[in-house]
């Protein structure tokens, strides 16, 4: 069997905030077509890890590479690497002064300089895929949180990224909107989109993930297949963490 192609390689990553290590030596690789879900308690460093992968944070030690190319905060060619990394954040971050369609078309037009007609057609196709064809000319303020997140996903997808980073994209949504967003992500997962996902939705993690990575205290505590992780976690910490999701008296 040929060796699987790594998209992201993280080696010995350390990230400190004011001297405290938020990420304390993490090694992680994501292969093409793989969906890796990061879970762990709040403040364990999951979101920081994603931000480091996208060069949004300077790192204190270790390396992050995309196809062997180092991702370095504030480096000259960072913008080139970022085109290949899609990122969706927790807070709805659409550009409020642009319509939905223009939000999606902005980066491919200005960054990739592709033809407007081609992008427009692709943007409309993406909107159809997430069920928002009728919102193309709406402004973000006219959308619900769930709709905004679906548009944000389209905005990243149109760049044809090598990998999508999703940072708790349903954490700020009303419960009834969580589903519509997760459906879109699950659909991407089924269609072979490489993703690294931070989420607190355990049922979704189980359904979408090829691999679960459990992080606590800035290190990887456990790494397993979803079925194994949710039914028979290997570590006490993971067991304790999973227990907090079942409400019983």
């Amino acid at each position: 069997m040929p060796e699987t192609e790594h998209i992201i390689d993280i080696n010995g990553l350390v990230k400190r905030f004011n001297g405290t290590a938020v990420i304390d030596g993490i090694d992680l690789s994501v292969s093409k077509g793989e969906v890796v879900v990061l879970i762990g308690p709040s403040g364990c460093g999951k979101s920081t890890l994603l931000r480091c992968i996208n060069g949004l944070e300077p790192i204190d030690a270790g390396t992050v590479t995309l196809h062997g190319e180092p991702v370095v905060h504030n480096s000259r060619n960072l913008y080139k690497i970022r085109q290949k990394i899609g990122m969706v954040f927790q807070s709805y971050d659409l550009f409020p002064h642009l319509t939905v369609l223009k939000n999606i078309m902005l980066a491919p037009m200005k960054v990739q300089k592709r033809s407007k007609e081609e992008i427009r057609a692709e943007a409309l196709k993406l909107l159809e895929r997430v069920g928002l064809s009728d919102k193309a000319e709406s402004f973000p303020s006219e959308l619900s949180g769930g709709q905004k997140q679906r548009v944000a996903i389209c905005r990243s997808l149109i760049m044809n990224p090598e990998i999508m980073l999703l940072d708790e994209i349903t954490a700020a949504l009303d419960p009834e909107m969580v589903h519509e967003v997760l459906d879109v992500v699950l659909d991407l997962a089924k269609n072979g989109t490489t993703m690294l996902i931070v989420t607190h939705e355990m049922a979704f993690a189980k359904a979408a993930a090829d691999r679960i990575v459990f992080i606590d205290g800035g290190v990887i505590v456990e790494e397993s297949e979803p079925d194994e992780f949710f039914t028979a976690p290997k570590t006490e910490r993971a067991k304790k963490f999973l227990k907090t999701f079942t409400y019983s008296r």
Partner: peptide
């Protein structure tokens, strides 16, 4: 977050300023 999501899309510093920050 506006700056970060614009940068994440691969927009360069001046593009972020001209296309995202200044209009808003």
């Amino acid at each position: 977050i506006q700056l970060e999501s614009a940068e994440s899309l691969g927009l360069r510093r001046h593009q972020v300023m001209n296309l995202i920050v200044i209009p808003q």
